[in-house]
Design a protein around this nucleic acid. Sequence first.
DNA 1: TGTTGTGAATCTCTTCACAGCT
DNA 2: AGCTGTGAAGAGATTCACAACA
Lengths: 194, 194
Amino acid sequence: MYRRLLRRLLSQGGGSVFSHELSQMAGNTAAQVRRDLMAVGALGSPAKGYDAEELMERIGGFLDGVGGQKVALVGIGNLGRAIMAYFTGLRQLLEVTAAFDNNEAKTDRVINGVRTYHTRDIEEVVRREKIAVGILTVPVDAAQSAADALVRAGVGGILNFAPVVLKTPETVFVEDMDMMVALEKVAYFARNGG
Amino acid sequence: MYRRLLRRLLSQGGGSVFSHELSQMAGNTAAQVRRDLMAVGALGSPAKGYDAEELMERIGGFLDGVGGQKVALVGIGNLGRAIMAYFTGLRQLLEVTAAFDNNEAKTDRVINGVRTYHTRDIEEVVRREKIAVGILTVPVDAAQSAADALVRAGVGGILNFAPVVLKTPETVFVEDMDMMVALEKVAYFARNGG
DNA sequence: TGTTGTGAATCTCTTCACAGCT
DNA sequence: AGCTGTGAAGAGATTCACAACA
C-alpha cells in the first residue's frame, strides 16, 4: 500500500515525505508508519523525512523476491475476468500467465493476454510453467478440487475468492477474500456505528 | 462464516456440534470457537455441544438488525456484475437494490434483477430508497467522488474494491477489499513460507 | 469421561514518549 | 524546532487450563 502511495507521490513530483504525511495518505498514525518502515529496513532523516525513491526500493527488496513470480487463475467467470483485466500489465513482477476453466468454450484461447486451458490440465501446466501462486475464482463446489490440483502442482500460495474454508497442507499459504463476509461486516458496522 | 458452516451442517442433517468440530470446519481452534460463540450469547451443553438451529438464530440476532438492509453498487464493470450475480438472491436481508454507472449504455436497465441508474443520481436514489450500504467497484479515479456521493446520501458503510484510501467522515465505516495487496501478500508468503 | 464457559496467562499489535539528531 | 528510531507501556486477541457439569 505504501508503494502505491509513493508511486503517486513521485508522479506528482514529491521527492521525500515525513511519516505524518504518509500516515495522512494511508489512513494511519505516524507511529505506525515508522514501525512499518523500520520493518523493511528503511531509514529517514529528521530533516527531510524519507526519500521516496529509496523507500520504494526498500519495500521492493522486502516484498519482491529476486525474480518475478507467475500466477495462475482458475475460474474464468465475471470475477475471474475482472481480476485478469485488473492485474494485467500492472506489475511485471507478478504476472498472470495461465487461466483455467472447465467450460470448453473458454479454453484454448487468449483472454486479456492470458492463455486459457481446461481445468484438467492445471497440474501439468502449472508445474511446467513453474507457477507459484494460484487465484481461485470458481464456484464453491469446484473450489476444493481446484485447490487440490494447484497444491499437487506445487504452488506456494492461493488467493481464494470462493466462500469455503479450503483444506490444504500448512506449507501452502491461503488468503481468503470472502465478499459475503465482508459485506455482512460492513452492513453490521453501518448499523452499529463503526 | 459460522453461519455458512452451520447452514451446510443442517442441510446434511447434523443437529448439534461440539466446538472442536466447528473449529475443524472453520480452520480454527476450539477455544476460539467458544469465545466467538460467547460473543453472540450462544450456549451449548457439555453433553451435546451447541444446537445448530439455535446457534444460527443467535448469530442472526447479533449480525442482522431488526429488518433487512438495502445495498447500492457503484460501477457496473466485470467486477460489479460478478458481485451482483454473487449476492443476488443469496440473502434476503442484504439486498442489492440499485446499481450505478456513468456509462449511459448501462443505465436505466435491469441487470441481474437490479435496477441501474446513472452515477449522477446516486444521491437522490440512495436517499429515496433508504439504502444503508454501498459497494464501490469503480476505477480508482472515480472512487473518491462516488464515495462522496454515497456519504452525502447518508450510507453508513462502504465496501471498497478500488485501490485507494477513501477519505470519509469517521461516522462511515469503510472496509477495503484490496486485491492487489492481497495478491502481493500471497506471493510474499508463497515464497517466504507461510 | 468429555465438553462447556471463562478467568488468567500469553502473545501480538498499536500507541506513547522521548533521547538523539539535523 | 521538529523529526526519526525505538524502548516501554498499553490494548487487543488468542490460547491455556480448569472448575462445573451432564
